[in-house]
Write a protein that binds this DNA or RNA. Structure first.
Length: 293
DNA sequence: TTAGGGTTACAG
DNA sequence: CTGTAACCCTAA
């Protein structure tokens, strides 16, 4: 594996994959014209995209014989070999993954006309909920969920997202969890690593993990990612940022789910990671754009 | 503009 | 030296 000149970053790869999944392989110019993709691939030309895609396909094709073992958490190559319209969703055996959504390119008919406005970041929603609830001992997850559900149009998987986000916020030190009650952590500026005191070691890293809440594991599917990307098209920076934030939350939730399940989630893991990579990169890029134009 | 072939640069 | 990945050139 060479690491020669300007090696492609994981973010760029994820963006390329997302673009190909959306527009199809070969529409390099189209992908590059998309604002959200061009942000990430600003330093790449259409030829670069083509070459990279070729390399990735060749790499994936060469390993046809040996059974693919584990996908190392970096630069996962996926088996998207379909052209454009087919969009083969990985058919997993036990847990059905859903949709073979046609997604006939909604150029003329934006289906998101009925979308629920721009969704703020779940992080901020949680903080807002806790703040407004003003419960001295902190708010429980259920209370937060109810607050969000009443004030906003929440997705069905809110529970999952909320659990994952709460966990993350707690781990990052932005929230303090005491007896199932979440409080807003004291301002530690940034670098969540609280230096000295506050031994939250007994945070209960793995308390009762192996308990899948619902047998139904709904992991992000390619089509869902596509749907998000489709929505991101033609959005303003703020809206796109919000969408990207949600994508991050969903990806993280998917990863957490995959890790907890730890079963045969190879595919899901790869997809979730890919989604996370792209979402993170999108957010980063958008942030940079708003700041440094 | 894209697909394909060729060249360069680096890792093993 | 060989394989791979980014880069480069050119025909369609």
């Amino acid at each position: 594996m060479g690491a020669p000149k300007q090696k492609w970053t994981s973010e760029e790869e994820a963006a390329l994959k997302a673009g190909v999944t959306k527009y199809g392989a070969g529409k390099w110019s189209t992908i590059l014209k998309d604002p959200e993709f061009s942000i990430l691939l600003y330093s790449r030309s259409n030829v670069d995209l083509k070459d990279k895609w070729r390399n990735m396909n060749v790499a994936a094709n060469g390993w046809g014989s040996r059974s693919r073992v584990r996908v190392t958490p970096k630069s996962n190559q996926q088996i998207v070999k379909d052209d454009d319209k087919a969009l083969i969703t990985v058919s997993q055996s036990d847990t059905e993954i859903v949709d073979a959504q046609p997604l006939a390119v909604s150029n003329g008919t934006p289906e998101n006309a009925s979308s629920k406005k721009s969704i703020p970041r779940l992080d901020n929603l949680i903080l807002e909920a806790i703040t407004n609830l003003k419960e001295p001992r902190g708010s429980s997850r259920a209370a937060i969920a109810i607050y969000i559900e009443e004030r906003y149009l929440a997705p069905e998987n809110l529970e999952k997202l909320l659990a994952a986000t709460l966990k993350l916020l707690t781990e990052n030190g932005k929230l303090i969890k005491v007896k199932h009650q979440f409080r807003i952590a004291p301002p530690s500026t940034h670098t969540d690593v609280n230096k000295g005191s506050s031994p939250l070691i007994l945070e209960g890293k793995q308390k009762n993990s192996p308990k899948v809440e619902k047998n139904e594991i709904k992991i992000l599917s390619k089509s869902q990612i596509d749907a998000e990307l489709e929505k991101m098209k033609g959005m303003t920076a703020q809206e796109a940022a919000a969408a990207a934030a949600q994508a991050v939350a969903e990806a993280e939730a998917a990863i957490a789910e995959a890790e907890e399940a730890a079963r045969e989630a190879e595919k899901a893991e790869a997809e979730a990671e890919e989604a996370q990579l792209f979402a993170e990169a999108a957010m980063k890029a958008l942030k940079c754009r708003t700041v440094c134009t």
